[in-house]
Design a protein around this nucleic acid. Structure first.
Length: 558
RNA sequence: UGGGGUGUAGCCAAGCGGUAAGGCAACGGACUCUGACUCCGUCAUCCCUAGGUUCAAAUCCUAGCACCCCAGCCA
C-alpha cells in the first residue's frame, strides 16, 4: 500500500481574535504598511503544543497579512541552552509547516550592540555595577507590599562602573561576584522595576557564540532591544510578561530606539498533561518517558511520533482561539482535530490487537482466497488492496463473548456476524483449555454472503475485523493514553499523578499483510479501533512498530 | 493588605449600546459491511454579583466578589 499518509483536510479558517483585529486595524489605518512578527524560543528544551499556539499565531499573521515572521533564539543563558535544542526547534517549526526564510536570528547576534548600549546607560547614570550577593540582593528587593532598599553600590561613579563592567567582560571576576543593574526605582510597585539585573557573569560556553563572552544579558535586557533591532511591529508574548513591558520601554526610551508594540495572550494549558519545559525536562531526566519525543509527551516531536499531523495541530490552534483568559483546553479538542484530519487522509486496514483464534469449520483446510477491500470507503481514488482469507483466522478477543452482555453486537455462541469484507459467519462453539480459558472460537461461514453474492444483503447485528492466521504478520503495537490521571494537575504534586498505564505494549498483535511494508510515519486507520502511525524511529518495512495516535470515537456506553 | 491582569454554557470562544456566532463535550434521531464517518435535531430569557445611566446594556458608570501573574544573577 503506497497511499500517502499526508493529511488532506482543509485548513481551518483563521478565526477572529483580538491580536488579529489589532493587526488588521494597524494595516488599515496605515500605522504599518507591513507587519513583522517573530517566534522567540529559548533553546533550553523541545517545543511543545503550547509553542505551536504561538508559532501558528505569529507565522499565521505574517502569512495572512503578507508580512514576515522571524525565528529568533533568545539564547541569553548558556547555562541552560544546547545545540541539540536549537536543532530540534528548527525541525519542529519546519515540520509544523512554517518557514522563516532568511529570517533566522539569535539574541546573541546582538550581544555587542547590547553591550554598547549598556555602556551608554552607565554613562547616563542609568546603570551600575553591584557587588551584592544574590541573597543580599533578594533581601534588599523588599516584598510585594514593602519597598526595597537601595544597594550601597548604587551610587558608584560612572568611571568606576565603566571600569568594573569592562573587567566583568574581560573575565576578571568569578560567576556571581557582580552584576550590572539598571538604576530605576527600588520602591516601584512593579517588582520588575526595582533595579533589575541587566548582566550577570557566566563562564560557560555558549551554543552559538562559543567562548566569546563571559557576561550575558538577562532576557529582560535583551528581548525588547532584539525586537527593536529586527523592526518587529507586533511583539506577541504570553501574559506573564505584561508587567515587563514598562521595563522594555524604559530601556528603549533611554537607548533612543524604536519601540515595538507588545501584546500578550494566555498560554495554552491542556488537560491531562503538563506543559512547562521544566516539567517536561523532569520527566525526561527522571526516566518517566523515553525522551523528549516520547509519544506520550505534548512536545511537537512527541505528537509527531504519536501520529499527529502538522495540519491537525494547526487546525487545533485555530480552533482554540487566542485570548487573555487563563484557560484549560480539553484534550478532546486536540483528539478530535487529529481524528478529523486522519478520517479523511488515512487508508484503512485491519489489525488484530489481542488475537483470538477463529476456526471456520466448513472452510477447506488447503484453500485460501483473497478479497479486495477499498483503502478508504469514502474515497475510492485511494484504491484497494487484497486481503487473504483461510480456514483459520484471528479476531479480537473483545469481539467474542460467550455470554453476551445486553446490547452486544458482535460474536457469541449461535449468533451471526459479518467478517469485514468477507463472509457472514455463525458461531458454533468454543474450545477451552484445562483451566477453562477460551483458546479458540469455532464457526461456519456462508459463501452466499460475500459481496455480490445472493445473500450479501443479509442483515446481521455486527461487523468485526479479522486477519488470516496463515498470512497475518506479527507487529509491535503500542497503545498510548493520557500522561496524567487528573484533568488539571497543578502545584508540585503533579509527579504523583502520573498515569501508570500511559503506555501498553501489545506483544501478540497481528496485522494484514498489506500493512507489513508500512514506511515510518505512515498512518492508517485500523478499522474499528483507531488511528495508528508506524513509528518514526523504530518501525521499518518488514518489522513494523505501530503507535496508536487516538482511538476512534466509541458511542458504546463505557 | 503593593502592582498588573481576567471573569459569556461542562471546556474554549465571538461579541465593542439594538436584544447571546462558532467549535469541543453531552443528549436524541437517520444512515451504515467500521458501535467509525456523514446527516438532522436539542443544548445561555442570559453574559461573576449588586446598584445605576439609557427607549434599549454582555457591551457605559459605581461598588463589591472570585481567580491568575510578579519578590531568579530563569525565560
Amino acid at each position: 500500500m503506497t497511499i500517502s499518509a499526508e493529511s488532506s483536510t482543509v485548513e481551518v479558517a483563521a478565526s477572529s481574535n483580538f491580536i488579529r483585529n489589532i493587526v488588521q486595524e494597524d494595516l488599515a489605518s496605515g500605522k504599518h504598511s507591513t507587519i513583522v512578527t517573530r517566534f522567540p524560543p529559548e533553546p533550553n528544551g523541545y517545543l511543545h503544543i503550547g509553542h505551536a499556539k504561538s508559532i501558528c499565531l505569529n507565522f499565521g499573521l505574517a502569512r495572512d497579512f503578507g508580512g514576515c515572521c522571524h525565528l529568533r533564539f533568545d539564547d541569553t543563558n548558556p547555562a541552560k541552552e544546547e545545540k541539540e535544542y536549537i536543532d530540534s526547534i528548527k525541525g519542529s517549526v519546519k515540520w509544523l509547516g512554517f518557514d522563516w526564510g532568511e529570517h533566522l536570528y539569535h539574541a546573541s547576534d546582538y550581544f555587542e550592540q547590547l553591550y554598547l548600549w549598556a555602556e551608554g546607560l552607565i554613562r547616563q547614570g542609568n546603570a551600575y555595577v553591584d557587588d551584592l550577593t544574590a541573597e543580599e540582593m533578594r533581601a534588599y528587593r523588599g516584598t510585594l507590599t514593602e519597598p526595597g532598599k537601595e544597594s550601597p553600590f548604587r551610587d558608584r561613579s560612572v568611571e568606576e562602573n565603566l571600569e568594573l563592567f569592562h573587567r566583568m567582560r574581560s573575565g576578571e571576576f568569578p560567576d556571581g561576584s557582580r552584576v550590572l543593574r539598571a538604576r530605576i526605582d527600588m520602591a516601584s510597585p512593579n517588582m520588575n522595576l526595582r533595579d533589575p539585573v541587566m548582566y550577570r557573569i557566566v563562564h560557560e560556553p555558549h551554543p552559538h557564540t562559543g567562548a566569546t563572552w563571559c557576561v550575558y544579558p538577562m532576557y529582560d535586557y535583551a528581548h525588547g532591544q532584539s525586537d527593536s533591532i529586527e523592526g518587529v511591529t507586533h511583539s506577541i508574548c504570553t501574559l506573564e510578561f505584561e508587567d515587563h513591558r514598562p521595563l522594555y520601554d524604559w530601556f528603549l526610551d533611554r537607548i533612543g530606539a524604536y519601540h515595538p508594540r507588545q501584546y500578550e495572550f494566555a498560554r495554552l494549558n491542556l488537560t491531562y498533561t503538563v506543559m512547562s519545559k521544566r516539567k517536561l525536562l523532569q520527566l525526561v531526566r527522571e526516566g518517566d518517558v523515553t525522551g523528549w519525543d516520547d509519544p506520550r509527551m505534548p512536545t511537537l516531536d512527541g505528537l509527531r511520533r504519536r501520529g499527529y499531523t502538522p495540519q491537525s495541530i494547526r487546525n487545533f490552534c485555530e480552533q482554540i482561539g487566542v485570548g487573555r483568559n487563563d484557560s484549560w483546553i480539553e484534550m478532546s479538542i486536540l483528539e478530535e482535530s487529529v481524528r478529523a484530519d486522519l478520517n479523511v487522509a488515512a487508508p484503512r486496514a485491519m489489525a488484530v490487537l489481542r488475537p483470538l483464534r477463529l476456526i471456520v469449520e466448513n472452510y477447506p483446510e488447503e484453500l485460501a482466497e483473497e478479497f479486495t477491500a477499498p483503502n478508504h470507503p469514502q474515497r475510492p481514488e485511494l484504491g484497494e488492496r487484497s486481503i487473504p482469507f483461510c480456514r483459520e483466522l484471528y479476531i479480537e478477543q473483545d469481539d467474542f463473548q460467550e455470554i453476551p452482555v445486553k446490547g452486544f453486537k458482535r460474536l457469541s455462541p449461535g449468533s451471526e456476524v459479518r467478517l469485514r469484507y468477507a463472509f457472514i459467519i455463525r458461531c458454533s462453539g468454543v474450545e477451552k483449555d484445562a483451566s477453562g480459558v477460551i483458546t479458540a472460537v469455532r464457526c461456519s461461514y456462508d459463501r452466499d454472503t460475500q459481496a455480490g453474492g445472493p445473500e450479501a444483503g443479509r442483515k446481521v447485528k455486527g461487523v468485526i475485523h479479522w486477519v488470516s492466521a496463515r498470512h497475518g504478520v506479527p507487529a509491535q503495537v503500542r497503545l498510548y493514553d493520557r500522561l496524567i490521571t487528573v484533568p488539571n494537575p497543578a502545584g508540585d504534586e503533579w509527579k504523583s499523578l502520573l498515569n501508570p498505564d500511559s503506555v501498553e505494549l501489545l506483544p501478540d498483535a497481528v496485522i494484514e499483510p498489506a500493512l507489513a511494508s508500512a514506511q515510518p510515519e505512515e498512518r492508517f486507520q485500523f478499522e474499528r479501533q483507531g488511528y495508528f502511525c508506524a513509528d518514526l524511529r523504530e518501525s521499518t518495512p518488514g518489522r513494523p512498530v505501530f503507535n496508536r495516535t487516538v482511538t476512534l470515537r466509541d458511542s458504546r456506553a463505557k
